[in-house]
Amino acid sequence: MARRGSSGAMVWLRGFWARVSIVLFIGISVALLLSQGNLDDPQSFNKIRVAADDVAAPAMQAVDLPLGGLSNFGSWLSSNWNAAERVRVLEAENRALRQWESLSHALHAKILRYEQLLNMQGEPEVRVLSTRVVAEAHGPFVRSALLRIGRDDGVSEGLAVVDPSGLIGRIVSVGKHSARVLLVNDLNSRIPVVFQGASVRAILAGDNQRDPKLIYVGKGFVPKNGDRVSTSGDDGVLPSGISIGEVVEVLNPDGSVGYRVQTYANLSTMDFVQILARQPAVPPELDPISPETGDQSIAILPGAADPSTPVTGELQ
């Protein structure tokens, strides 16, 4: 009798704990959600996130091995589909690209010569780190990717991530062996851009849609379909001149015309990516000149005896 009573009490206690724990954990979830506000603070819970990424990245790589075979089979099947037609198109494209290649070689040589003549300074070298995407988040709330490369490999926050076609995003958090990329179409992504050939600035803002939108376009400038957009480098973090995509006009829900950028990089099928590791520009107040070395940063232009003497010249 007493045994039956204690068993009943246990059942009641279990049921009670189940109900309490549901309320408790829903409460904790809501508290977590509210504590993040609208994610204005990118550092919120950053340490926990970075630690989780460090644990998840190797596990993801292990899972990716067998699943990668599945993806590769799909790619193989699609690349072999209508192969003759694809070869014809690629050959035509190759002929056109050869012409562009010779033109770009000539222009590159010309630019190098101009830079030499002008003694061009201030373009730091960019180190390229290649890696593979081990996890993607293309959910309705976030657009990010996880890389198996971290602080130990020289990665830091803010670096640009590209694929052979163009910009994908930038690094937002770095662990010891992992890094998270915020894609250009994520809600929290804001990148200063320039319209190629027009030198007009704008901001490329993600809103969790496929194509990010252009906001704060320079006064008086009306973008057109097909205008090319690249990074302006105004943030002092991303290098300037990284191709992003082309402008497409869209109709906003309120009937007004908006502008979005169709990215060259396919943000939904990332595989191998490159991180452009560049030393960010240090403001002069944080980079004082030491009295022993003196001012080494002033470039002495060719033909000028004294740096203070104005130099006039003609480009050849």
Partner: peptide, 27 residues
């Protein structure tokens, strides 16, 4: 419930989304 909560929370961490979103939804 605590396993459901943990799974949701780990999903939020791995996807880099707002913490608590999937744990709340699953629960």
């Amino acid at each position: 419930p605590f396993v459901v909560f943990a799974i949701g929370l780990i999903q939020d961490l791995i996807t880099g989304g707002p913490l608590g979103l999937w744990s709340f939804s699953y629960l």
